[in-house]
Nucleic acid binder design. Structure first.
Lengths: 124, 124
DNA sequence: GATGTTTTCTACGTGCCGTAGAATTCTACG
DNA sequence: CGTAGAATTCTACGGCACGTAGAAAACATC
């Protein structure tokens, strides 16, 4: 019933996606767990089964794909973080009736540098 | 523990915010309930206490303020929907390390009309 | 085929949210 | 005032998403 928007990631799910996105190649669950420990401040370290459960859920949600032929299964993201975030932005933008008004507020809050960047992108 | 981002609204909470945002003046819970029924397709109609509970939660979350002096209490939004959505967009944008790359994807997906709109906004 | 590894299954605890009755407080009106 | 009706607060339950992970099953390897 809940209009399943894409904005549905928990804390650990997001942390795992971040590791996958930062990786240069598909990762095995164990490696991923290592990276997770490295990037986590408190050194918290979930059980390997926990990581796999979340990975399965992320796969079900379409965020990652896994190579089931490889022997530890290898996981990779279905889209880049940038594409994902851009998509989220559009999704959020779409939730307003007056898109133009939202854009006005939006550009009113970007940094000068980003404004310049946007100008260049738009002229390209 | 969960890094409470602003992106936390349930289905009913959002529906209620939409009614409040569409309203031209502060609303009483009963009126709000009416509007809710009107805008809902299935004619689903939550109990008045349900509406009030959610309203209280929205107040706690800082999304609405209520006039406690008025006799039915009157509720209104703390910010416009456009400001809210723009804020969300920035929040989402901030979740990426490479903001420029995100912006590139983002502008690559806006409609021509919106691109034009953005150009004008940036030059203002 | 026994052993270590990897994966799947199953399941619990917690917190958010929709839901709303019960109890309480408040306002008018007679 | 006293009381009825209206409004507000309190309390609470059920469902679902997530973090969590053990138990069990499937695999690979020697």
């Amino acid at each position: 019933m809940a209009t399943r928007t894409v904005v549905n990631l928990g804390e650990l799910e997001r942390a795992i996606m971040d590791v996958i996105w930062d990786a240069t190649a598909p990762l095995a669950a164990t490696d991923l767990r290592e990276q997770l420990k490295a990037s986590a401040p408190g050194g918290k370290e979930p059980a390997i089964t926990t990581v796999m459960t979340v990975l399965s859920r992320l796969e079900a949600k379409g965020f990652v794909v896994r190579d089931r032929d490889a022997r530890p299964h290898l996981y990779s993201a279905t889209m880049t973080r940038e594409d994902h975030v851009a998509e989220l932005m559009h999704e959020v933008l779409g939730s307003a009736s007056d898109r133009d008004a939202v854009l006005a507020r939006f550009v009113g809050q970007v940094t000068p540098h980003e404004a310049e960047r946007l100008r260049r992108l738009l002229d390209a």
